[in-house]
Design a protein around this nucleic acid. Sequence first.
DNA 1: TGCATTTATCATGTGGATATGATAAACTCG
DNA 2: CGAGTTTATCATATCCACATGATAAATGCA
Lengths: 182, 182
Amino acid sequence: MQFAGSPSPDTPRMFLSGTTQYAIRAVIHVAEHAADEPLRVDDIAAALDVPRNYLSKTLHQLVRAGVLKSGRGPRGGFQLAEPPDALTLARVAAPFDDLANRQCLLGRATCTSRRPCSAHGRWESISTQMLTFFGHTTIADLMAEIAERPSTAPVHDRPPAASLRTSGPPRGRTARRARAAP
Amino acid sequence: MQFAGSPSPDTPRMFLSGTTQYAIRAVIHVAEHAADEPLRVDDIAAALDVPRNYLSKTLHQLVRAGVLKSGRGPRGGFQLAEPPDALTLARVAAPFDDLANRQCLLGRATCTSRRPCSAHGRWESISTQMLTFFGHTTIADLMAEIAERPSTAPVHDRPPAASLRTSGPPRGRTARRARAAP
DNA sequence: TGCATTTATCATGTGGATATGATAAACTCG
DNA sequence: CGAGTTTATCATATCCACATGATAAATGCA
């Protein structure tokens, strides 16, 4: 099956907004790092290759949404506010994109669940599957396996990760970031 | 399951662009009318409750795409260029929204079919179903039954719809369009 | 032919998503 | 405390989807 070879717009319309994509990727990236060491915006932005200042604002929204924790100053940065298997994509996307509230496929003002339009029923099953996907898939599901660990083991049975900083040992701070300060 | 009660944006992001929605609805509306009488922009815009001039431009793009035919002057207007069961949603949407070319869910530049990102496989099956939906659903599938019809019958167990008009009896043509010209 | 009708095209406006740069505020540590 | 680091916030800038209004071009008909 091969859709019409029309001219079509340059940038295909994305399912998730750019900001939502940034948010999910950022949370995944944070989750893939040691939980006891916060990640700075600069590092996240560099890793994702997205604009730093814009990402900063986006991360802040995730903090307000309770997805991330943040701290300022030296040793500041971002950490997960909850374990990765508790963070669904819907939860991460919520501040930017209300996935649950997608309405009539054709934008008909008169289309309701009472009087659905002709496209409604046909689209609904797919639409429902999408909601389920975003509601059930968690950040843990999308994390790359870190270091040693049976490659496909579910994230569940991992040790509690030392209570997310707040008290852990200083841990060296071995010269990450070779950026020369001017 | 109940997504986070976040503030969330005012206008939920639509799956199809507004213009694509206009286009599909317009084509359905044209298809629901007698094939031998062109429909004017004013009538279509009024029926869909969308801005007239903008719709005009959109309809013209459908003409260039071979979905509609148009004529100017008195007795001008728009008609289908092909029978409704030959017009898939993908075909109608193509000039505005390249559905087939949706890329990585998370917008990752490095995500390819060779090296898919962690979200890729999980999303793919849903994504594929959407493509199939738009590639298989036709305008004929979405047309309201014209004239007499059992009011709430589910769409399934309906008789095959008599090869979808194209040759049925003229079916009345009772005084449409009562606009008094000034 | 001349006029009314209707689509085609052009010029421009508006709002939101995305992005940038500068400044303020909070935090750590010598 | 004071200096350096890092997030939080503010003030704009840009681009595109969507929209508006005016004008041009084509068509049918008296």
